Simulated scan of single mutants.
Amino acid sequence: MLAKTTTLEKALALAPNVLLEPKFDGFRCIVFKDGDEVELASRNTKPLTRYFPEVVAAMREQLPERCVLDGEIFVSLGSGGKERLEFEVLQERIHPAASRIAMLAEKTPASYVAFDLLALGDESYAERPFVERRGALEAALGGLAGPCFLTRTTADPAEAEEWFHQFEGAGLDGVVAKPLDAPYQPNARTMLKIKHERTADVVVAGYREHKTSTPEKPLLGSLLLGLYNDEGQLQHIGVSASFTAVRRAELIEELQPLVCDISDHPWGHWEEFLTANPDRVPGTQSRWSQGKDLSFTPLRPERVLEVAYDHMEGHRFRHTAQFRRWRTDRDPESCGYEQLDEPVSYDLARILSVH
Rank of each mutant, 00 (worst) to 15 (best):
L69Q: 05
V175F: 02
R134F: 03
H196G: 04
S124Q: 01
C335R: 00
N17C: 11
A245P: 04
R43C: 08
N187E: 14
I94T: 01
E123M: 07
S240K: 02
E209V: 11
M191E: 05
K4A: 11
R318L: 09
H236T: 05
T244C: 03
E216I: 08
L251E: 02
P266W: 00
P64F: 04
E209K: 06
R28L: 05
A15Y: 14
E216W: 09
P147R: 01
L90R: 00
H315M: 14
R325V: 05
D122A: 06
V239M: 09
Q256P: 04
F87R: 04
I73T: 01
L19E: 03
V304R: 01
T284P: 00
V131H: 09
E272A: 12
A170C: 10
W326G: 09
S111W: 05
R330V: 06
E333S: 12
A57F: 09
D264W: 00
S240C: 13
V55I: 11
E37A: 14
S222W: 03
T244P: 02
V113I: 07
F167L: 11
N44V: 13
G206I: 00
V131K: 08
H165E: 15
V203W: 00
F24M: 09
Q235V: 11
E338T: 14
V307N: 00
G226P: 02
L104D: 03
E21I: 06
H315E: 15
K217S: 15
D261K: 08
P53Q: 12
Q339P: 00
Q285K: 10
M191H: 08
P301K: 02
P183A: 15
N44K: 14
P109S: 10
Y228M: 08
C29I: 07
E88G: 14
R280K: 12
Q185S: 08
D347R: 00
Q166C: 13
F24A: 13
R100G: 10
S295L: 06
R28E: 10
L40M: 12
H210R: 02
S76C: 13
V204L: 05
V55F: 03
Q166E: 15
S240E: 12
P64D: 02
A155M: 11
R324Q: 13
F87L: 10
N17Y: 15
Y51V: 01
P64M: 05
Q185M: 13
D329W: 10
F32H: 15
G26T: 04
L137D: 09
A97P: 03
H236F: 14
L223S: 06
A97R: 11
D122V: 06
E127S: 15
I101Q: 02
G206A: 09
L63G: 05
R100F: 07
W270Y: 10
S345H: 08
R128L: 13
G135V: 07
E86L: 02
E168T: 03
P266G: 04
H319D: 13
L274I: 12
L14F: 07
E86D: 15
S222D: 09
T284L: 07
K33A: 06
N17H: 14
